[in-house]
Simulated assay, not measured.
Amino acid sequence: MDEETFERGMKWVFGIVLVLGAATVSWQWLRGQAWPWMTEHPWWVAAVAGTPVAGLVVLGLGRGYDDFAYVEESDAAEEARAGRTRGGLAWLESVSPTDFEHACADFLRRDGFRAVRRVGGPGDKGADVLAEDRSGRVLVIQCKQFAKPVSAGHVHAFNGTAGPEHGADVAIMVGLNGFTAPAAEFAANHGIHLVGRAELGKWAHGTHLYDLIDVYL
């Protein structure tokens, strides 16, 4: 039995008990015998009064079971399960390059950036996603879903278009599997912010982009 069916069934059971109990007490009250009847049937009164509380407890336990099981998992199991969820690293590895770009755009929207649009495709001149922060600065992002680290040549090419072609105030490259050492060195020397695999995992799971690349409003 799934959680939804269980919850619906328990609501019906507790609802029926509560309605019958309320109807019985009301009937006795109308007859003017409510108090004597209640003193003679304490267990029935306790059952009726405790029904709402019992319902909350049972339904709460039903909903909380998965959370309890999750706490008991090892760190490795937790990371594996998180990676398989939509937006996790394993999911990002499995989607198409276009969906990878759309995912990065979605992360930007979640972080509160404005005018976010995915523009990647033929003739994009190195820009896959464009956005603005709340200060009006233009973000230009290139997304690389490569199976290996991004090489320096790709960073060189992006450096030549991010500012001149797109007016980037903040130029960012996202590499699913990181960047080579020469690529990282060139990016640092030319003001290009890199989001490697570790940073991408944190971004996907809620860390604000600017916290990852040390840019502040």
Rank of each mutant, 00 (worst) to 15 (best):
F68P: 06
A49L: 07
A22D: 03
G160Q: 09
F186Y: 15
E132F: 00
A157T: 15
H154C: 05
L212G: 01
D106P: 02
H154Q: 12
P182V: 06
G32D: 08
H102K: 12
E40P: 02
G112W: 00
W37C: 01
L176E: 05
L61V: 02
R117D: 06
S135Q: 15
V150M: 01
F158R: 00
Y70M: 11
F14D: 03
A103P: 01
C104N: 08
G163L: 07
R134H: 13
T5P: 05
A49D: 01
G153I: 11
A34C: 10
Q28A: 05
M10H: 08
G55C: 14
R81F: 02
G167C: 10
G9A: 12
S135N: 12
H208A: 13
A184M: 11
A147V: 06
K144P: 01
G123R: 09
R114I: 03
H205E: 11
G126I: 12
E40R: 11
A115N: 14
L59V: 14
E185K: 15
P97Q: 09
G153S: 13
L56A: 15
R197W: 07
H41G: 03
D2W: 05
V48M: 07
S74Y: 06
V25M: 15
G21Y: 00
V116I: 00
S26D: 06
G64E: 15
E132R: 01
R110L: 04
R134A: 13
M38Q: 00
T24P: 04
G175Q: 07
